[in-house]
Amino acid sequence: MTLFIEQCLNGLQFGLLLFLLAAGLTLVFGIMDLVNLAHGSLYMIGAYFAATFAAWTGSFVLGAVLALGATLMVGMAVEVIAMRRLYGRDHLDHVLGTFGLILFFDESVRLIWGPEGLSLPLPSWLNRSVQILPGVNYSAYRLAIIVVTLTVAAFLYVLVMRTRIGMLIRAGASNREMVGALGVNIKLLYTLVFGLGAALAGLAGLMQAPILTVQIGMGENILILAFVITVIGGIGSIRGALVAAIFVGFIDTLGRAFFPDLLRMVLSPAAASTAAPALSSMMIYLLMAIVLVVKPEGLFSAGNK
C-alpha cells in the first residue's frame, strides 16, 4: 500500500513535470501553428544551465533562478533568429528546420560542456524525506516539484485567462491577422510566448536534473512524450495538456513499477524485466492512437480551426 501511494505520487510528479513541457509546446503549437522539435533542446539547456550556475553560485535556488532567466533569453534569441522565419510555412519545414536546431544544440552542448553528463546535487534541506501520512514517507524534493508545478499551472491559468497579455494570446490563436490589424505588436507577442514556452521547458529540465543525470539527448526522449501529450490533450489547449500529462505520467510510472511483477506471472524473470518498461512505454502510444482514432482533434481541442 505504501509503495502504491508512493508510486502514485511519483506518477503525479512526473505528469506535472511533463505538463510544463507540454504547456510550452501547446502554446507555441496553438498560437504560432509551429511544430517545434527543438523544445526538448531547451529542456536540456535549462538543466545544463542550472547545473553550471548552481556550481558557480553554490546555491541551488539561485542557480535555478539564473538558469530560468538564461533559458528564457536563449528561447527568445532562437525565436528572433530562426523561428520567426518559419511561421506560416509548411509543417514539414518546421519539422526539418527544428530538427536542424536539435543537431546544433546537442553539438553546442557537447562543445561547451563536453560529452560527459553533469550532475546537480540537491541541497540538504531538499535531500530528505518527509512524512506525508502516518507511516508514509516521501521525498521532499519530489514534493517540492509537485508544489512548484501546480503553482506554475495556476499562474499559467491566470495569465492566459485573466490578464490582458493572455487575452491577446488567445486572440492571436484564433486570428492572427485580425489581432495584428487591430494594432497589437504581434511579433513581440510571439517572441514573448516563445520565450515563455522556453522558460517552462527550462524549468522542467532544471527540476528533473537532480533526479536524472544531465546529459546530451535527454531532451529527445521526453520531447516525444510531450508531443504525445499535446496531441492527446488537443493542440492549443493548456487544460487538455494538464489532464493528458497527468494521465501519461501515471501510466508511465505505474507501468514501470507494477508491470514487472504482473509479467513475471507469465514470463521468465529476465524476459519480464526487459519487456516491462517497453510495455509501459507502448501503453502511452497506444493511448494516443486510440484517442486519435476516436477523437482526431484530441480530448480538449481548442476548437479554433
Partner: peptide, 26 residues
C-alpha cells in the same frame, strides 16, 4: 483518418511503439 500535424504525430507514435516492441524482445 487524421491529417496535418495529427498525421505526423500518429505515425511518429506508431513508429515509437514498434521501437519499444523490439526493445522489449529479450
Amino acid at each position: 483518418r487524421t491529417r496535418g500535424v495529427y498525421f505526423i504525430m500518429i505515425t511518429l507514435a506508431f513508429a515509437q511503439m514498434a521501437y519499444y516492441i523490439f526493445a522489449g524482445l529479450a
